[in-house]
Design a protein around this nucleic acid. Structure first.
Lengths: 204, 204, 204, 204
DNA sequence: GATGAATGAGCTTTCATTCAT
DNA sequence: TATGAATGAAAGCTCATTCAT
């Protein structure tokens, strides 16, 4: 033990401890997201997650109660992060410019956070895993559908619901294809096409 | 028990054995599709599949070499069934009428075979399961993209690739939403909207 | 069904049935010996044995009560065959010539029946399998040790027991080496050396 | 529980972990040797080995990758131990005294390590298990045959190869008989006879 | 007698979770 | 807080044995 480390033995402040805990928690969360997204919930093991995060298996259990709790925490965080980005856009009146912005932001999100979306879809597809989650996701989808409807109504759509539905399907479809590994289309080009397309309602 | 079956103690004929095997193989295949679609590949256990099919665990292994082989067989059959339905439509010149027909057929397929599509997407989302499959699915997606492109070119699209991409995204998105349990929108209404919409190119 | 086979429906005589049964029994016995000798008792499966013999699994159970009973039958037959060959030599007074003959006969046996000896040793080495067999083998070893002792006493050995022991060890050792797969020494040459050597007692 | 251990809640040091692992590894290795030697490779179950070692089934897999890897480790260790004992004797010029010593050492080894030799022979007898092992054993047998040949040549044998072969067969035979459970001859007496006998060449 | 589909106990192996240190 | 050895339930898979035909 060096002189220095002896000096450092002075107790860390509560705040320091909390910061360290928070950092480690985030490390685990991010690592687990990657691993879950790659192998699926059942296919990913706590061992793998721990070793990817460079910590011991046991430590994970001091941050999360169980594997299931870890999954929930990941999804909660993911949903929260996304809502944070969009919430200030969603309740305003939406202009075509704002919609463009909104979509651009979404695509940035998607590219930065592909793993989350892959996990999201994988889980959404599996009723038995979905059950663990109750309605974690309702909050994610509903307000954005409403916003789309309002937008198309504002743009003079004769069938704003159909327009919103179409837009939703298009975005889901694009997200899906981006996220599916075997499919590496040129996202930047696609973005342009989609944004242009979604601006105008179909039902005029 | 009939008179005949009491007297007839001779062994089953080859044909009888083959029938039994074919029927049971199909039973296992169908049951396993349901269970995989519900719990995912790793989340579904052979035990569960067997008990759903009303057979003993061991019997599955007399029909399929392994859990992985079972998955592959399910997907092969699924892909084959779908290709069969579409192959006579795909290489013709496509008129709007034929496209309508094609989409209607697809939606019928989808409604009859939701479990397959759920499994398809769930697997496509998980690189580590996907690897087991090599490119089982390439054959499913490629020809149908080409057909779409040809159609929109024929309809005077200035950007047939973009139109095909949009159409693909829309269909994927709809399929996805239909297949995700928590979302039970009125498919019949959606179908009408989609079919109308996809008939005309966006880029004129 | 052909004319001919209809005519042949006349019941077979009891004797014919028994002959067929005996032949099939021997077929199973010989096949099982090979398979047991290659894979060991636990490593050999009834399926493998049946398919090597070209019969259905179930049929084996109409000839032998169980896998264990099959093993016992193999060993009983093997021991019986060997005793048959030697019994007329064993209780006579043994001359050097007869000993030579006896050893030659043994080596012929060994070469014709390597699988039996491999199985014999493999089983003798495993207390837990050996237990199934009670003292099937005592009868095989004892009389031949006595014969050796008598022989060396007759040849003027000062320690006939030691001489018999040596001879026994040498024969076991040779048999063992012949039977172990990875060791393919020139048996014909070895035979000569051994026979010469065993003729004379060591303790004079 | 000591004062110290109550207070000391710091994690085990690397060295402590290594010690635990080494000890447990040896425990598993030794226990498994006994169990394999008793029941054979296929007849011994991991469950049985674990319960004999007083550990949970799963723990074995934290020390060895598989049942097969466990077997290999046992044999590697056994071969290494034996080679260690003999290597300093094997490459010297061998006098009768050294041969006596060598044989005595071998018999001590044999008595201490009967289980290893039983396993060795049982495995050598089963081609299908032997295949797992590649030529683990070549290194064990070859140098010792060469040493024997050199010895008998030095002692004036006219046929040192035949003498070595005989010696080898005798030793194998004795080992075999010692190791076979149902045969409990007086090893000490046998040793004396063998050692005396092997000292002099047969071919003078 | 002959077949092979079917069973289920038991095997090898994995992994979420616990716990002494 | 942090470690990783340890557990045991449950997974995938095998195989001796049974039985309807």
């Amino acid at each position: 033990m060096t002189e220095r480390s002896v000096k450092n033995m002075s107790p860390r402040t509560k705040k320091q401890f909390e910061e360290i805990r928070q950092e480690k928690r985030d490390l685990i969360l991010n690592t687990a997201l990657e691993v879950f997204a790659t192998h699926g919930y059942h296919g990913a093991s706590i061992s793998t997650i721990a070793s990817h995060a460079g910590i011991a298996k046991g430590l994970m259990y001091s941050y999360f109660e169980s594997k299931e709790a870890l999954l929930k925490a990941i999804l909660e965080k993911g949903v929260r992060d996304i809502l944070e980005v969009f919430e200030h856009m969603v309740n305003k009146e939406i202009t075509p410019e704002i919609l463009r912005k909104l979509l651009q932001t979404f695509f940035v999100q998607l590219k930065e956070n592909g793993a989350f979306w892959r996990l999201y879809f994988a889980i959404a597809m599996q009723p038995s895993v979905m059950e663990l989650l109750e309605n974690e996701f309702e909050s994610l989808v509903n307000p954005y559908m409403e916003t789309l409807k309002r937008y198309y109504r504002g743009q003079g759509s004769k069938n704003p619901e159909a327009d919103a539905l179409l837009a939703h399907a298009i975005i889901d479809g694009i997200t899906l294809n981006y996220v599916m590994v075997h499919h590496n289309f040129d996202m930047n080009k696609v973005e342009q096409i989609i944004i242009e397309r979604l601006e105008k309602p179909s039902y005029l």
